[in-house]
Amino acid sequence: MDKVARVASENGLVIFSKSTCCLCYAVNILFQELGVTPYVHEIDHDPEGKEIEKALTRMGCNAPIPAIFINGKLVGSTNEVMSLHLSGALIPLLRPYQTTTN
């Protein structure tokens, strides 16, 4: 979907989220603790939310939310982000977006 690609490319770090999703909240808190402030697009507040969710699934996001994009590229959902973090590969990806030093 064009809207997903546009939002992901216009913002360096994006979480497609739902306001009631605890996993979305957890990923957002992780990013804040790592010193980055992602752009959070709440699809449950977007009239095109259902289409966005379908588009994220078609793009290969196993769980459509949260869907995390870094530098315009789909990283994945919670499992992929946590795996990257545990392996030490997440922080280098986030470094350009850090506002604080960890």
Rank of each mutant, 00 (worst) to 15 (best):
Val40Met: 00
His41Leu: 00
His41Cys: 00
Glu42Ala: 04
Glu42Gln: 11
Glu42Leu: 01
Ile43Asn: 02
Ile43Thr: 04
Ile43Gly: 04
Ile43Leu: 02
Asp44Arg: 04
Asp44Thr: 06
Asp44Ala: 01
Asp44Gly: 04
His45Lys: 12
His45Phe: 13
His45Asp: 04
His45Met: 06
Asp46His: 04
Asp46Cys: 02
Asp46Gly: 00
Pro47Ala: 13
Glu48Asn: 14
Glu48Gly: 09
Glu48Trp: 02
Lys50Cys: 00
Glu51Asn: 15
Glu51Cys: 02
Glu51Thr: 12
Ile52Met: 02
Ile52Glu: 00
Ile52Pro: 01
Glu53Leu: 06
Glu53Asp: 04
Glu53Arg: 08
Lys54Ile: 05
Lys54His: 13
Lys54Glu: 12
Lys54Asp: 12
Ala55Trp: 11
Ala55Ile: 00
Leu56Gly: 05
Leu56Met: 09
Leu56Trp: 07
Thr57Gln: 08
Thr57Trp: 07
Thr57Ala: 11
Thr57Glu: 05
Arg58Glu: 10
Arg58Ala: 11
Arg58Leu: 10
Arg58Thr: 08
Met59Gly: 04
Met59Pro: 00
Met59Arg: 13
Met59Cys: 04
Gly60Asp: 09
Gly60Phe: 14
Gly60His: 13
Cys61Ser: 11
Asn62Gly: 14
Asn62Tyr: 15
Asn62Ala: 14
Ala63Trp: 10
Ala63Met: 12
Ala63Ser: 15
Pro64Phe: 14
Pro64His: 14
Pro64Gly: 06
Ile65Cys: 11
Ile65Ala: 08
Pro66Met: 06
Pro66Ala: 12
Pro66Val: 11
Ala67Gln: 10
Ala67Leu: 10
Ile68Asp: 00
Ile68Pro: 05
Phe69Thr: 10
Ile70Asn: 09
Asn71His: 13
Asn71Cys: 08
Asn71Val: 00
Asn71Gln: 12
Asn71Ile: 02
Gly72Arg: 06
Gly72Tyr: 05
Gly72Ser: 05
Gly72Val: 03
Gly72Ile: 01
Lys73Asn: 13
Lys73Val: 07
Lys73Gln: 12
Leu74Pro: 01
Val75Cys: 09
Val75Lys: 14
Val75Tyr: 08
Val75Pro: 10
Val75Trp: 03
Gly76Leu: 09
Ser77Tyr: 07
Ser77Gly: 15
Thr78Val: 07
Asn79Gly: 14
Glu80Tyr: 10
Glu80Gln: 15
Val81Asp: 03
Val81Lys: 02
Val81Trp: 03
Val81His: 02
Met82Trp: 05
Met82Gly: 00
Ser83Lys: 14
Ser83Phe: 12
Ser83Met: 12
Leu84Thr: 12
Leu84Gln: 09
His85Thr: 03
Leu86Ala: 15
Ser87Met: 11
Ser87Tyr: 06
Ser87Gly: 13
Ser87Phe: 07
Gly88Glu: 02
Gly88Tyr: 05
Ala89Ser: 13
Ala89Pro: 01
Ala89Leu: 08
Ala89Trp: 03
Ala89Thr: 08
Ile91Ser: 08
Ile91Ala: 13
Pro92Tyr: 06
Leu93Glu: 02
Leu93Lys: 13
Leu94Phe: 12
Arg95Pro: 02
Pro96Phe: 04
Tyr97Cys: 01
Tyr97Gly: 06
Gln98Asn: 07
Gln98Lys: 15
Gln98Tyr: 09
Thr99Pro: 00
Thr99Asn: 10
Thr99Val: 13
Thr99Met: 10
Thr100Asp: 08
Thr101Tyr: 06
Thr101Asn: 11
Thr101Cys: 09
